[in-house]
């Protein structure tokens, strides 16, 4: 009977976990590739950093299997919209944010994230930096 000491046992467990995670990630990427989850436009332009940017965006995706799906933003635990199977393949959304936001589709049946995309917020006047306060002399 093969006996493993504690260090070797821990190493085997760690390698197994890494392998599982890598496989899970590959599966997720594969699922994401299959879904073609995208948003247009993917960029919202505000005048200054810190100002809220407004943009009507359209998410689109392609689903290959059934189940209950929901679209989420990374800023809220409440879904933006949920649907069954292939009932929905696009969604219009009024984006309002001063920062970039990630959106993701979650398969509620499998309790797993299926695809992610992002709306970036950019600014025209970019060099807005916090200045130190107080009196200054030459």
């Amino acid at each position: 009977m093969v006996k493993l000491n504690k260090d070797k046992f821990a190493l085997v467990i760690l390698l197994s976990l890494i392998g599982s995670l890598a496989m899970a990630e590959n599966e997720l990427e594969h699922a994401m590739d299959n879904m073609n989850f995208s948003v247009k436009p993917s960029r919202c332009i505000a005048l200054h950093k810190g100002q809220k940017c407004y943009q009507t965006v359209e998410f689109s995706w392609r689903l290959v299997s059934g189940g209950l799906y929901c679209l989420y933003s990374s800023t809220s635990t409440e879904p933006l919209v949920c649907w069954q199977g292939k009932a929905l393949s696009s969604f219009h959304y009024e984006f309002q944010s001063a920062e970039s936001i990630t959106f993701y589709i979650r398969n509620e049946t499998l309790a797993s994230t299926q695809a992610k995309t992002k709306v970036d917020v950019a600014w025209v006047y970019k060099n807005r930096q916090k200045a130190s306060s107080g009196w200054r002399l030459f």
């Binding site: 005048l47 200054h48 810190g50 100002q51 006047y125 060099n127 807005r128 930096q129 916090k130 200045a131």
Partner: peptide
């Protein structure tokens, strides 16, 4: 005022 009335000093902006 172009900054949308955010009540902050324009010195936060640099050059353009």
């Amino acid at each position: 005022v172009r900054a949308g009335g955010d009540g902050k000093s324009s010195s936060y902006e640099e050059s353009y």
